[in-house]
Amino acid sequence: MTVVCLAYAPIAVTELWPYARPGAPALGEWLLGRSVSPEFVAEAVRDRMGPYSRSLAPLILHSVLGGLLMLLGPVQLLTALRRRVRLHRITGTVFAVTVYVSMAGAALYLVRTPPEQAFSGAAFWIVLATILVGTVGSVSLGVLAAIRGLPDLHQRWMLLCYGFLMTAPLLRLEWGFLPSLYPGLSIQDINRVAIMHLGALVSFGALLASRALDRRATVPGVTGTWCPAPVMAAVHLAGAAGLAWTTVAFLDHGAGGRRLLLAYVVPYAVTYAVIVVRAARARVRGADWAREEWRMHLAALCLAPAFSAVTVPVLERTMGLDRLTALVAGVGTGCGVLAYAAVTVVSLRVLHGRELLKRQRPFAERPATGPAPVSVAAREGDHR
């Protein structure tokens, strides 16, 4: 992650300079032109020129600060691991402020640009808006958890926030990789393939990081499970139904639909398999909290296709989208939205355990009531 961030930071800072001043150096365009083709770069620039020209200043602000965030993320992780508390708090404050200002620039672009006129179309616009909301919401809840003295929840929310930010460098990597896998595809089609799994990929990475940093076998106050067998059976049925509907919907769109379905199903299956194995291993070694968190994320992953299936007709009716565009947008946002919901449920699980401990503590500390015990000698003296 650190290598990717350090490599992408100068690309992010210089990415939009040529749009403001033609001929200005842009490291990303130079690298992409040599890894793919100059024609692919020219197409990407041409498609972005119109939408970006309406909000160039906010987008440059967003891009430059995005490069700074790529540097601050590894700094935050390293200071947390090395327990440099003061430095971690200072850089964390800078990180949070930078996220807000950078996302404000992106929000201005989205507000000023109609979805159908955005770079790579309405589906890409919807996915970008979802990432923006998830990033701002995650950093806000992460800051709130830090203020309330909840480091375990702070860690989870900040990792999820940075996962959403990592969609930018990972998308650029896919720009360099996917054209060799699918030669001849336009930049819009490449972006559609990428957003099929980027949300699932970054949220899964945040989950792996959270579990790697949390070595606790149990959490005080957390007993039992919020995901018993009937709940898991129900979410698996809902997920299977949603996945079946999604599969049929994509297959109705020929070769392009099959390509998009493959880009979604393969990472989804890998993610599902890893979570199931990790939950089983946690059960074997008696790590109840790890097993519970894995199961909550598994339930959310199962519900993602069902969420997407419900979202597609809503997008069609409310935004006037065609079926394929609504399908790409609904599927592209499903795993990210449900991962956000899973972290929310995990947070509520921890807070519920803390509340139970608070309620039990007064009863444990309360002194016994009733008359004070009288010694045998005192009773005999009274009798005499």
Rank of each mutant, 00 (worst) to 15 (best):
G242C: 06
L165T: 06
V127E: 13
L185Y: 09
V133D: 06
F40Y: 14
L303P: 05
V274L: 14
A96S: 15
A364N: 13
A304R: 04
T344D: 12
E316V: 09
G224Q: 07
G205C: 04
Y340A: 12
H62N: 08
S102Y: 05
V222K: 09
A200M: 15
I126S: 07
L170A: 15
R211I: 03
A229F: 02
R215A: 13
A309F: 03
P74A: 11
L132T: 15
S55K: 04
A123D: 15
C161D: 13
L170H: 09
L81D: 15
R34V: 05
M1D: 02
G353T: 06
R295K: 03
R211K: 11
Q76V: 13
G121M: 13
H62G: 02
L72H: 09
H297A: 02
L315N: 03
L303T: 04
R156G: 14
V94G: 14
F204C: 00
V231I: 01
T113P: 12
R366K: 10
S308L: 02
P183T: 01
A233H: 04
R172Y: 11
W226S: 07
V345F: 02
S308M: 06
V266C: 09
R295F: 01
T369W: 00
V41H: 03
M70Y: 03
F164R: 09
I147Y: 15
A378R: 12
P371R: 08
R317M: 10
W226R: 03
A233D: 03
R295S: 08
G353S: 08
H352K: 07
T93W: 15
L78N: 15
A377R: 09
T14Y: 10
G67P: 09
A339Q: 09
R323T: 12
L144D: 12
E380G: 02
G320N: 04
H253D: 14
P151H: 11
L351G: 09
S53K: 08
T247I: 07
P10L: 14
P18L: 02
R349P: 01
A342K: 01
W157Y: 03
G50W: 08
I90M: 07
K358A: 05
G256K: 06
S55P: 06
S203A: 13
T98R: 08
V97L: 15
Y109W: 05
Y19R: 12
A107L: 15
S308P: 00
A299C: 00
R384D: 01
A372Y: 11
T369Q: 05
A229L: 06
P367T: 01
L262E: 01
A44T: 01
S120V: 11
W30I: 04
A104Y: 02
M166F: 14
P25G: 05
F124G: 05
C5N: 01
D322P: 10
T246W: 05
R156A: 06
S186A: 10
G67Q: 12
R34A: 12
A104Q: 01
T14D: 02
L351M: 13
Y272C: 05
